[in-house]
Protein backbone atom coordinates (compact mmCIF):
# COMPACT_ATOMS: atom_id res chain seq x y z
CA UNK A 1 0.00 0.00 0.00
CA UNK A 2 1.20 3.51 -0.78
CA UNK A 3 -0.11 7.02 -0.07
CA UNK A 4 -1.97 9.14 -2.58
CA UNK A 5 -0.90 12.75 -3.16
CA UNK A 6 -3.47 13.75 -0.55
CA UNK A 7 -2.13 11.04 1.74
CA UNK A 8 1.37 12.53 1.57
CA UNK A 9 -0.10 15.98 2.35
CA UNK A 10 -2.05 14.51 5.28
CA UNK A 11 1.12 12.96 6.72
CA UNK A 12 3.06 16.24 6.40
CA UNK A 13 0.28 18.16 8.15
CA UNK A 14 0.56 15.91 11.22
CA UNK A 15 4.11 17.18 11.78
CA UNK A 16 3.45 20.93 11.62
CA UNK A 17 3.61 22.29 15.17
CA UNK A 18 1.47 24.83 16.95
CA UNK A 19 2.60 28.35 16.12
CA UNK A 20 4.39 27.44 12.90
CA UNK A 21 4.47 29.73 9.87
CA UNK A 22 4.42 27.54 6.79
CA UNK A 23 4.98 28.16 3.10
CA UNK A 24 3.41 25.56 0.79
CA UNK A 25 4.74 25.02 -2.72
CA UNK A 26 2.84 24.12 -5.88
CA UNK A 27 1.62 20.52 -6.30
CA UNK A 28 1.40 18.08 -3.38
CA UNK A 29 2.51 20.71 -0.79
CA UNK A 30 -0.44 23.05 -1.36
CA UNK A 31 -2.77 20.11 -0.58
CA UNK A 32 -1.54 20.29 3.04
CA UNK A 33 -3.93 23.23 3.55
CA UNK A 34 -6.88 20.81 3.70
CA UNK A 35 -5.34 18.63 6.45
CA UNK A 36 -4.10 21.13 9.01
CA UNK A 37 -4.92 19.90 12.51
CA UNK A 38 -7.86 22.00 13.80
CA UNK A 39 -6.49 22.01 17.34
CA UNK A 40 -3.34 23.93 16.37
CA UNK A 41 -2.89 27.52 15.23
CA UNK A 42 -0.75 27.34 12.09
CA UNK A 43 -0.32 30.23 9.68
CA UNK A 44 0.02 29.50 5.98
CA UNK A 45 2.20 31.93 4.03
CA UNK A 46 1.91 32.58 0.33
CA UNK A 47 4.85 34.38 -1.25
CA UNK A 48 2.64 36.83 -3.15
CA UNK A 49 1.94 38.61 0.11
CA UNK A 50 -0.49 36.64 2.26
CA UNK A 51 0.01 35.31 5.79
CA UNK A 52 -2.93 33.38 7.20
CA UNK A 53 -4.30 31.73 4.08
CA UNK A 54 -7.47 29.76 4.78
CA UNK A 55 -9.41 27.19 2.76
CA UNK A 56 -9.96 27.58 -0.96
CA UNK A 57 -12.89 29.82 -1.95
CA UNK A 58 -16.17 28.01 -2.53
CA UNK A 59 -17.49 28.12 -6.10
CA UNK A 60 -19.32 31.39 -6.66
CA UNK A 61 -17.43 33.23 -3.92
CA UNK A 62 -14.10 33.67 -5.75
CA UNK A 63 -12.61 37.16 -5.43
CA UNK A 64 -10.12 37.97 -8.23
CA UNK A 65 -7.89 39.90 -5.80
CA UNK A 66 -7.43 36.96 -3.44
CA UNK A 67 -5.18 34.39 -5.07
CA UNK A 68 -2.40 32.31 -3.53
CA UNK A 69 0.94 31.67 -5.24
CA UNK A 70 -0.49 28.48 -6.76
CA UNK A 71 -3.02 30.79 -8.50
CA UNK A 72 -5.95 29.39 -6.51
CA UNK A 73 -8.77 31.56 -5.15
CA UNK A 74 -8.42 31.50 -1.38
CA UNK A 75 -9.93 32.83 1.80
CA UNK A 76 -8.09 34.35 4.75
CA UNK A 77 -8.31 33.27 8.39
CA UNK A 78 -8.91 35.72 11.27
CA UNK A 79 -5.57 37.35 12.07
CA UNK A 80 -4.34 37.14 8.49
CA UNK A 81 -2.25 39.95 7.01
CA UNK A 82 -1.44 41.27 3.54
CA UNK A 83 1.86 42.80 2.39
CA UNK A 84 4.16 43.31 -0.55
CA UNK A 85 6.76 41.01 -2.08
CA UNK A 86 9.75 42.62 -0.36
CA UNK A 87 8.26 41.94 3.07
CA UNK A 88 7.14 38.50 1.96
CA UNK A 89 10.69 37.49 1.00
CA UNK A 90 12.01 39.15 4.15
CA UNK A 91 9.91 36.54 5.96
CA UNK A 92 11.39 33.76 3.81
CA UNK A 93 15.04 34.71 3.46
CA UNK A 94 15.25 36.22 6.94
CA UNK A 95 14.37 32.89 8.53
CA UNK A 96 10.97 33.95 9.91
CA UNK A 97 8.99 31.34 8.01
CA UNK A 98 9.49 28.25 10.18
CA UNK A 99 8.56 25.53 7.68
CA UNK A 100 8.58 25.17 3.92
CA UNK A 101 6.92 22.23 2.21
CA UNK A 102 8.21 21.98 -1.31
CA UNK A 103 8.18 19.61 -4.30
CA UNK A 104 11.34 18.09 -5.71
CA UNK A 105 12.74 16.59 -8.87
CA UNK A 106 15.63 15.03 -6.96
CA UNK A 107 16.95 14.95 -3.40
CA UNK A 108 20.46 13.75 -2.54
CA UNK A 109 21.62 11.81 0.49
CA UNK A 110 23.25 14.95 1.93
CA UNK A 111 20.05 17.02 1.61
CA UNK A 112 20.88 18.69 -1.70
CA UNK A 113 17.68 19.77 -3.45
CA UNK A 114 17.04 19.98 -7.19
CA UNK A 115 13.54 21.25 -7.96
CA UNK A 116 13.74 24.15 -10.41
CA UNK A 117 15.05 22.78 -13.64
CA UNK A 118 15.04 19.39 -15.30
CA UNK A 119 18.29 18.85 -17.19
CA UNK A 120 17.73 19.96 -20.75
CA UNK A 121 14.43 21.71 -20.01
CA UNK A 122 13.71 24.30 -22.65
CA UNK A 123 12.29 27.23 -20.67
CA UNK A 124 13.70 27.60 -17.16
CA UNK A 125 11.81 29.09 -14.22
CA UNK A 126 12.82 29.33 -10.58
CA UNK A 127 10.15 31.38 -8.81
CA UNK A 128 10.68 31.52 -5.05
CA UNK A 129 12.18 28.02 -4.70
CA UNK A 130 15.77 29.12 -4.12
CA UNK A 131 14.85 31.75 -1.54
CA UNK A 132 12.83 29.15 0.36
CA UNK A 133 15.59 26.54 0.15
CA UNK A 134 18.26 28.95 1.37
CA UNK A 135 16.12 30.76 3.92
CA UNK A 136 13.81 28.30 5.69
CA UNK A 137 15.26 26.08 8.39
CA UNK A 138 12.72 23.25 8.28
CA UNK A 139 12.59 22.42 4.60
CA UNK A 140 10.32 19.41 4.00
CA UNK A 141 10.11 17.80 0.60
CA UNK A 142 6.74 16.25 -0.36
CA UNK A 143 6.90 14.18 -3.53
CA UNK A 144 6.34 10.78 -5.08
CA UNK A 145 9.13 8.37 -4.23
CA UNK A 146 10.01 7.58 -7.84
CA UNK A 147 9.54 9.26 -11.23
CA UNK A 148 6.70 8.46 -13.64
CA UNK A 149 9.11 5.99 -15.23
CA UNK A 150 9.74 4.32 -11.88
CA UNK A 151 13.26 5.70 -11.43
CA UNK A 152 14.51 6.78 -8.00
CA UNK A 153 14.36 10.47 -7.09
CA UNK A 154 16.31 10.08 -3.84
CA UNK A 155 19.86 9.78 -5.10
CA UNK A 156 23.49 9.66 -4.01
CA UNK A 157 24.02 12.90 -5.94
CA UNK A 158 21.60 15.16 -7.81
CA UNK A 159 21.94 15.15 -11.59
CA UNK A 160 19.73 18.22 -12.18
CA UNK A 161 20.92 21.76 -11.39
CA UNK A 162 20.72 22.40 -7.63
CA UNK A 163 18.20 24.68 -5.98
CA UNK A 164 20.32 24.75 -2.83
CA UNK A 165 22.89 22.45 -1.24
CA UNK A 166 22.29 20.52 2.00
CA UNK A 167 18.94 22.16 2.77
CA UNK A 168 16.35 19.34 3.00
CA UNK A 169 15.46 18.14 6.52
CA UNK A 170 12.77 15.55 5.77
CA UNK A 171 11.38 13.75 2.75
CA UNK A 172 7.71 12.71 2.72
CA UNK A 173 6.76 10.35 -0.09
CA UNK A 174 4.02 7.91 -1.03
CA UNK A 175 6.20 5.15 0.45
CA UNK A 176 8.07 6.59 3.39
CA UNK A 177 9.17 9.34 5.73
CA UNK A 178 12.92 9.84 5.59
CA UNK A 179 14.98 12.20 7.69
CA UNK A 180 18.19 13.77 6.41
CA UNK A 181 20.87 13.48 9.11
CA UNK A 182 24.59 14.30 9.16
CA UNK A 183 25.14 10.51 8.91
CA UNK A 184 22.93 10.19 5.82
CA UNK A 185 19.31 9.24 5.24
CA UNK A 186 17.33 7.73 8.10
CA UNK A 187 14.16 5.76 7.37
CA UNK A 188 11.64 6.79 10.04
CA UNK A 189 8.32 5.51 8.73
CA UNK A 190 7.06 3.26 5.95
CA UNK A 191 3.61 3.11 4.37
CA UNK A 192 1.42 0.33 5.73
CA UNK A 193 2.40 -3.08 4.42
CA UNK A 194 5.73 -1.94 2.95
CA UNK A 195 9.08 -3.17 4.21
CA UNK A 196 12.26 -1.17 4.63
CA UNK A 197 13.74 -3.35 1.89
CA UNK A 198 10.96 -2.39 -0.51
CA UNK A 199 11.61 1.30 0.15
CA UNK A 200 15.36 0.85 -0.27
CA UNK A 201 14.75 -0.91 -3.61
CA UNK A 202 13.15 2.33 -4.90
CA UNK A 203 15.87 4.56 -3.43
CA UNK A 204 19.34 5.00 -4.92
CA UNK A 205 20.92 6.48 -1.79
CA UNK A 206 21.51 4.11 1.13
CA UNK A 207 18.93 4.24 3.94
CA UNK A 208 19.62 3.49 7.57
CA UNK A 209 16.58 2.12 9.31
CA UNK A 210 15.72 3.94 12.54
CA UNK A 211 15.51 1.79 15.66
CA UNK A 212 11.94 2.97 16.13
CA UNK A 213 10.98 2.80 12.43
CA UNK A 214 7.23 2.26 12.20
CA UNK A 215 4.23 2.18 9.92
CA UNK A 216 2.65 5.50 9.00
CA UNK A 217 -0.56 6.41 10.75
CA UNK A 218 -2.54 7.65 7.78
CA UNK A 219 -6.20 6.59 7.42
CA UNK A 220 -7.42 5.19 4.11
CA UNK A 221 -9.84 8.06 3.69
CA UNK A 222 -10.45 11.54 5.10
CA UNK A 223 -13.69 13.45 4.44
CA UNK A 224 -14.30 11.38 1.32
CA UNK A 225 -10.79 11.79 -0.11
CA UNK A 226 -8.65 8.68 -0.65
CA UNK A 227 -5.36 8.89 1.25
CA UNK A 228 -4.03 5.43 0.41
CA UNK A 229 -3.86 3.45 -2.79
Amino acid sequence: MTLTRDGIAYRVALDLPEGSYVNLGIGIPILVTAYLPPDKEIFIHSENGLLGVGPMSLPGTEDPDFLNASKQFVTLVPGASLFDHALSFTMIRGGHITHSVIGAIEVAANGDLANWRVSGEKVPGVGGAMDLAFGVRNLYVAMNHVTNKGEPKILNHCTCPLTAPRCVRRIYTDMALIEVTPEGLLLREVARGLTAEAVQACTEAPLRVADDCREMTVPDEFKGVRLTA
Binding site: F89, V126, G128
Partner: peptide, 10 residues
Protein backbone atom coordinates in the same frame (compact mmCIF):
# COMPACT_ATOMS: atom_id res chain seq x y z
CA UNK B 1 17.52 36.98 -17.43
CA UNK B 2 16.26 34.52 -14.82
CA UNK B 3 16.40 35.70 -11.20
CA UNK B 4 15.16 34.05 -7.98
CA UNK B 5 11.94 35.80 -6.93
CA UNK B 6 13.26 37.19 -3.64
CA UNK B 7 16.38 38.48 -5.35
CA UNK B 8 14.27 40.06 -8.10
CA UNK B 9 12.13 42.07 -5.69
CA UNK B 10 15.12 43.00 -3.53
Amino acid sequence: ELIPQGTLVE
